[in-house]
């Protein structure tokens, strides 16, 4: 498992864990970034990422990206 901030552009990954609780975890949950969901990394700029879930694209800043732990899709 690695944080989303350490993935590479173009990778397809599966969310395995979301660190921390409180507002951030809930906000991610509302957007559909939940455990078991598959993400495509569209862009990596330093530690910020843009991910795609289905038809939605989200930009995550470094802080948010480091809290989402993922592993590559098999």
């Amino acid at each position: 498992m690695v944080p989303l901030s350490l993935t590479k552009s173009g990778e397809k990954v599966v969310v395995r864990s979301i660190c921390g609780t409180g507002h951030l975890a809930k906000t991610l949950g509302q957007l559909g970034i939940i455990i078991g969901i598959e993400l495509t990394i569209i862009q990596k700029a330093k530690e910020s990422v843009i991910v795609r879930i289905g038809e939605s694209r989200y930009a995550l800043g470094a802080g948010a990206a480091s809290m989402v732990l993922v592993e590559p899709r098999k």
Partner: peptide
């Protein structure tokens, strides 16, 4: 303190 984490939907 730090600014809260950035999460935003990108429109098509």
């Amino acid at each position: 303190d730090e600014p809260s984490p950035f999460i935003m939907e990108l429109p098509p």
